[in-house]
Design a protein around this nucleic acid. Structure first.
Lengths: 115, 115
DNA sequence: TTCGATGTTCGTGAAACATCGAACAAGGTA
DNA sequence: TACCTTGTTCGATGTTTCACGAACATCGAA
């Protein structure tokens, strides 16, 4: 389990961010993380195999949307809201608004148990 | 040359719009159209073959970002800014701001001659 | 050290995408 | 009518993406 790369705000590209958000599952993940809380992998419930979920989380991370932290064998994700808002002002909010009103990615859920 | 389908605002989906914007050439096209003027195909200068340009314009149209009008054998495009702003408030503006500050899609140009 | 839990990576296949050139259709023009 | 211009569609090709299960690596607990 190697430490993944997180792009600096300056390394983030608009096209990569929009590409990362052009998938319902990833929009669902972002929605789930939008409350600002860090979540453990295990809390994330998405209708895909774990390797596929790992893939989607990687796409989000590589685009700079999320930050991954490792603690022992557990992993935690959080939304890089501040970095995003600084780099692309207003973008995340408008996407979240639209995702909410259209209920995109609703099949991605988070369990109540903290781990 | 058949008449293309334009989705109603209610038929537009967030994921399709973001997917359409996850390509530098298409972002460039949107930037060029962002001044609100209608443009003829022939004014659009992009570093791709004409069939590829046709493809990109179709993706934009299918996602609901642009409207195509036909006049004789010429075609004209314009940005559906009002529809976009109504359907996904703030989204287009934040994307255009980001595209401008990062100069995304700058290799897409528009010639001065109206046709 | 052995086992179980947690994620990542690999190998693979299907689908989607970007791209091109060639062929085509339709409207003007000579 | 013949030709030219304009844009679409088609077929081929190579790349990327999404998906899965299996194998692997790592850590903590028994």
């Amino acid at each position: 389990m190697k430490q993944a790369h997180h792009p600096e705000p300056g390394e983030m590209t608009l096209v990569a961010v929009l590409g990362a958000l052009s998938d319902p599952i990833r929009v669902g993940l972002v929605r789930v993380l939008a409350d600002g809380h860090e979540r453990g992998w295990g809390q994330l419930r998405a209708p895909v195999a774990k390797s596929t979920l790992s893939h989607h989380l990687r796409v989000l991370r590589d685009a700079g949307l999320t930050r991954t932290r490792q603690e022992g064998t557990r992993c935690f994700v959080e939304l890089r809201r501040h970095d995003l808002d600084t780099r692309f002002p207003g973008l995340l909010d408008s996407v979240l608004d639209a995702a909410h009103s259209d209920d995109i990615g609703a099949h991605v859920q988070v369990t109540g148990t903290p781990d």
